[in-house]
Simulated scan of single mutants.
Amino acid sequence: MSTSPLTPSEPLIRAEGLSVRFGSRQVLDRVDVAVQPGKVVTLIGPNGAGKTTLVRALLGLVKPSSGSVRRRPGLRIGYMPQRLAVDPTLPLTVRRFLALWRPVTAGRMTAALEQAGVARLADQPVQSISGGEMQRVLLARALLAEPDLLVLDEPDQAVDVHGQAELYARIDAVRRASGCGVLLVSHDLHTVMARTDHVVCLNGHVCCSGHPEDVSRHPEYHSLFGGHAAELAVYLHHHDHAHADDGSLVRTTEGGCCHG
């Protein structure tokens, strides 16, 4: 497998023809994916589709059987796993928990906690915080790397709908402020379609990929998700108008705006 670096003008990370076998089982078959700076790429697919395996192969944690992974030289990656178990007997505050992985200044830790929206939890025991709060602590942990590429494996685990909206708003703010790329794994098709620049629909191989609107209309997408695909279709809000401070519509351009 080739691991040659990318040039600065190329994506942050790129996989080409990536295949992974575990014994006799083919988990991934000739997958292509790339993440550009400042863009959000989302992997969707059913359980067992190989999404986490693909992420682990991109991170160098799983050895592909064929294909190539290329990374920009000096690429800094912040990784947020699906979940992280903490021994309930360990006397760990959030601050001490974050310091376990890398030496970090107090200022940098505070900044990461603020970016994730959990600065108020810094001195709380990790065992006392909610599942949604823990996910944002894990986001802060990923941000300590000051990443060029933020890799998020189902970050909305154990997070309610309101918490998901806040979490993804935080991720979007980080992307806009730093220009980092984001590789996101999710089962939540509503969230995927609203929050991403490029979707890769995976089921051992790439079923379809492209702009969220295009993927949502693709026959392979509908075949994979069945009747749920129509129920979860993206609502595309083309912002061809302006609003007053109270939210009322004050101007439209050709095509208008559909509300309902």
Rank of each mutant, 00 (worst) to 15 (best):
S4D: 09
P5Q: 04
S9F: 14
E10G: 03
P11G: 14
P11A: 12
R14Q: 15
A15G: 08
E16G: 13
L18E: 02
V20Q: 08
R25Y: 04
V27K: 03
V27E: 06
D29C: 14
D32R: 12
D32W: 11
V33G: 08
V33E: 05
Q36R: 14
G38L: 07
K39A: 12
V41P: 00
L43W: 02
G45W: 00
G45I: 00
G50F: 01
G50A: 05
K51C: 14
T53R: 03
T53F: 10
T53Q: 06
T53Y: 04
A57G: 02
A57M: 00
G60H: 05
G60E: 08
P64D: 11
S66R: 11
G67Y: 09
V69K: 01
R70P: 04
R71Q: 14
G74M: 10
Y79A: 03
Y79L: 05
M80Y: 06
L84T: 01
V86Q: 06
D87E: 02
L90V: 04
R95W: 08
R96P: 02
W101Q: 13
V104Y: 07
R108E: 11
M109C: 07
M109I: 03
A111H: 14
E114V: 09
E114R: 15
Q115V: 01
Q115L: 07
A119K: 12
A119Y: 10
R120D: 11
L121P: 06
D123N: 13
S128R: 12
M134T: 01
R136W: 05
R136I: 02
L138W: 05
L138D: 02
L139N: 04
L139D: 04
A140V: 07
R141Q: 11
A145G: 03
D148K: 07
E154Q: 07
D156C: 09
H162P: 00
G163R: 04
G163F: 05
G163M: 02
Q164F: 13
E166F: 08
L167E: 05
L167Q: 03
L167V: 03
L167T: 03
Y168M: 10
A169W: 08
I171K: 00
I171V: 15
D172W: 11
D172Q: 15
V174F: 14
V185L: 06
S186E: 09
H187V: 00
T191W: 04
T191C: 10
V192W: 01
A194H: 10
A194Q: 10
R195N: 15
D197Q: 09
V200L: 08
V200R: 03
V206F: 08
C208A: 12
C208M: 07
C208N: 05
G210I: 14
H211Y: 13
H211S: 13
P212H: 09
D214E: 15
V215I: 12
V215M: 09
V215E: 05
P219R: 09
E220K: 01
S223G: 14
G226F: 06
L232W: 12
L232N: 10
L236P: 03
H237L: 11
H238S: 11
H239M: 09
H239G: 09
D240T: 11
D240K: 11
H241E: 10
A242D: 13
A242V: 12
D245G: 10
S248I: 00
L249W: 08
T252W: 11
E254S: 13
E254A: 11
G255N: 02
